[in-house]
């Protein structure tokens, strides 16, 4: 987790490349090299490139569950434009993504402040914050669903014990409360990951910078503003990419906790996609939806990677 290991890892590919050019032994055995990467090539071709091509062609076809698929041009895409559930799902997913990204960062900064402390116990706190991350989303969502129950849930019990409410809250009863419940779950489960990655970023800033600033009489706020923040900019950009992509593709937590309800108010894009493909078996329409999602995410990734690069300069 220190600066040295990070930098050494980053430079390794460069030295490897020089060694390869200066020494020709490997280049003389191209066939052996191919043998080593054959499993990779087979899997990438068969389970990634071919399905990708099928997906695109499916999106231009009427693809019934039984019977022969037929080319239907842009029909599937036209259906999408008039599909209110799909449009509603996009709006909701964007809202969810925006809130989740902000909340995750806000909480993660607090946790970094705690777990980056030189005090005794910081290591224990760090582990405690990270543990929920290794629990599977389906298991965590199931747990949250039990805890949110009006009848038997501990959340209501705890709120009533401290007299914050005198009757059950109904955590999943209204669209607003259901969204709130999913966001608390997601924060609890994923914020530990944000914290660890941010810690790596913070700890890779050379300590001399802080010492020099202290000698020059910079305040804590100034050190934060002029040393820490610029130092972790690439990390922040990377976490934004991961958090935005992850939230746009949210499925498990909604499928288990709210099932898209109440009244389809928490229907995410991937949940709508799943329903279309595997509940209503409209495979062509689902493929078109997937292609739209795919193109949107690739564009988004490009834009964000661009930002990441300029921030590194």
């Amino acid at each position: 987790m220190s600066l040295t290991t990070t930098r050494a890892g980053a430079e390794a590919p460069a030295t490897g490349a020089t060694a390869r050019r200066s020494r020709g032994s490997a280049a003389r055995r191209p066939f052996t090299g191919l043998l080593f990467v054959t499993p990779t090539a087979v899997i990438v071709a068969g389970l990634f490139l071919v399905p990708l091509a099928i997906l695109v062609s499916m999106s231009f076809m009427d693809w019934p569950l039984l019977g022969t698929p037929q080319f239907d041009g842009l029909d599937n895409y036209r259906h999408l434009a008039h599909d209110n559930q799909f449009i509603g799902a996009i709006t909701f997913t964007l809202l969810y993504t925006a809130i989740t990204t902000v909340v995750l960062f806000a909480v993660a900064f607090v946790l970094v402040a705690v777990s980056n402390s030189p005090r005794r116990g910081a290591r224990f706190y760090r582990t405690a914050f990270f543990l929920p991350y290794v629990v599977g989303t389906a298991a965590a969502s199931t747990m949250w669903w039990v805890d949110s129950s009006d009848r038997l849930g501990i959340f209501n019990q705890a709120l009533q014990a401290v007299h914050l409410t005198d009757k059950p809250v109904g955590f999943l009863d209204t669209p607003g409360k259901a969204l709130f419940s999913v966001i608390t779950l997601v924060t609890w489960k994923f914020v530990g990951f944000q914290m660890v990655v941010l810690l790596v970023g913070v700890q890779s800033i050379p300590g001399e910078l802080y010492e020099a600033a202290r000698v020059d009489g910079a305040s804590t706020m100034q050190r934060l503003r002029y040393i820490t923040l610029p130092g972790i900019k690439p990390t922040l950009a990377l976490l934004t990419v991961l958090s935005v992509t992850g939230s746009l593709l949210a499925f498990d937590q909604f499928y288990v906790l709210t099932h898209g309800g109440p009244d389809n108010s928490t229907m995410t894009v991937v949940l709508a996609l799943y329903n279309k493909a595997f509940q209503s078996y409209r495979l062509g329409d689902a493929a078109a939806e997937a292609v739209v999602l795919l193109v949107a995410l690739i564009l988004l990734n490009f834009v964000q990677l661009r930002l990441l690069r300029t921030k590194e300069d």
């Binding site: 990438v44 068969g46 389970l47 099928i54 499916m58 746009l248 996609l273 997937a290 999602l293």
Partner: peptide
């Protein structure tokens, strides 16, 4: 590395067919 660029959920449908 391109596998990372493609959202996981979108490719499950054609994978089902493959």
């Amino acid at each position: 590395l391109g596998i990372l660029m493609v959202p996981y959920a979108t490719i499950l449908l054609p994978l089902y067919i493959v």
